[in-house]
């Protein structure tokens, strides 16, 4: 019986591998989120000279589990004036796009099993970088729909703010990523990592790196750019009306986006899984770099106050965008006149 099934499945095992990869990526990402929340709270505690959660379990690790269980069992309140369908759709869109975005990120060399090479990625696309931008720009809809469907002025303000902010900072993000594409000559993330085997792009492309990092923080709606959920002005911004697991899904989306953005910065500017010091376990190198960037994200949050909304827009359109345009022009000139000549 089992032999028969195995015989039948044998020609289709490439499909099975795809499914297994998808499950691993989704489950891995979702289970990293509580850990990341725990890490953020612990680190924030240290930054602000206090302890952070340390009562439940060793080092307070049980707190993550306890929070997850609490959120699962909380009552799900949907206010009667909300647009039910959109209200349910919005958090799903946020989490879905966040996970799909990560599926295009490679995190190691492919390895051989049974004569067929298995890549450490969900999908190695020729247009990987563009795909990530495309899907992550779809993630804005989750936030806008949450704002629109809640029938609450704070939610609406949060939704509008976030869409305006993400549209403005996407331009800088794309332009500074274009510098990397110029240098490596490929949109494929695997090839981009390959082309950094001697030196990470953060060194020759330092201005682009800084621009990409700033725009990346803004794109993930993290402090100091967390205008969409500014507590003091908007209660909780676009997810004011959400409770229980749906509230947690917005959190999941934000933290997964944070991981994806860190991974993207690692791939584009920090050389991906190239270690440069002879340490030769690609996955660990990659994970370490991502971890370091996540810590920087948390560090930024606990250090900087929130920017005022008009300053945010001015900064995005009048400073970051022209700078990134000039940077791109300069690097394309260098590419044409120096490297190719």
């Amino acid at each position: 019986m089992i032999d028969d099934i195995l015989n039948f499945l044998d020609p289709y095992w490439w499909l099975i591998i795809g499914v297994v990869k998808a499950v691993i990526i989704a489950v891995g990402l979702l289970s990293t989120v509580p850990l990341l929340v725990w890490l953020e709270r612990r680190l924030m505690g240290r930054f602000q000279v206090r302890l952070g959660p340390n009562r439940v379990g060793p080092l307070g690790l049980g707190q993550a589990l306890a929070d997850a269980i609490k959120l699962l069992f909380k009552e799900n309140i949907v206010q009667s004036s909300a647009d039910k369908f959109l209200f349910y759709l919005a958090p799903a869109v946020v989490v879905f796009t966040a996970i799909v975005t990560f599926s295009a990120i490679p995190f190691g060399e492919p390895f051989e099993v049974g004569g067929e090479s298995i890549g450490l990625w969900g999908a190695n696309l020729n247009i990987g970088l563009l795909f990530i931008f495309a899907v992550s720009s779809m993630g804005i809809y989750g936030i806008v729909l949450a704002g629109l469907s809640s029938n609450n002025k704070y939610s609406l303000m949060g939704g509008l703010r976030s869409s305006a902010q993400m549209i403005s900072y996407e331009l800088t993000l794309g332009l500074s990523a274009l510098c990397v594409v110029l240098m490596s000559g490929s949109l494929n993330l695997y090839d981009i990592v390959k082309s950094q085997s001697d030196m990470p792009y953060a060194i020759p492309l330092f201005p682009a790196f800084v621009l990409f990092f700033i725009a990346g923080v803004a794109e993930t709606n993290r402090a100091p750019f967390d205008l969409p959920e500014a507590e003091q002005e908007l209660v909780a911004g676009f997810f004011t009306e959400y409770s229980g697991m749906k509230f947690a899904m917005f959190f999941m989306g934000e933290y997964i986006n944070m991981i994806t953005m860190s991974a993207l910065i690692t791939i584009l500017f920090l050389g991906g899984w190239n270690s440069y010091i002879g340490f030769d376990i690609p996955i660990l190198v990659f994970a370490f770099k991502v971890f370091l960037l996540l810590c920087v994200f948390i560090w930024l949050r606990s250090t900087f106050p929130r920017i005022r909304y008009d300053r945010l827009m001015t900064f995005g359109w009048k400073i970051l965008l022209p700078t990134s345009l000039v940077t791109m022009l300069a690097y394309s000139a260098i590419k044409v006149l120096v490297i190719d000549a």
Binding site: L125, N126, I127, L130, F131, F133, A134, V135, S137, M138, I140, Y141, V144, L145, G147, L148, L156, G159, L160, S163, A164, I167, E170
Partner: peptide
Amino acid sequence: EFLAVVQVVVYAGAVMILFLFIIAL
């Protein structure tokens, strides 16, 4: 694939966000 992604980035990602923006306002 390039056209597909451009379709999503330009139309679904940018233009439609503005549509929703206007509807919301």
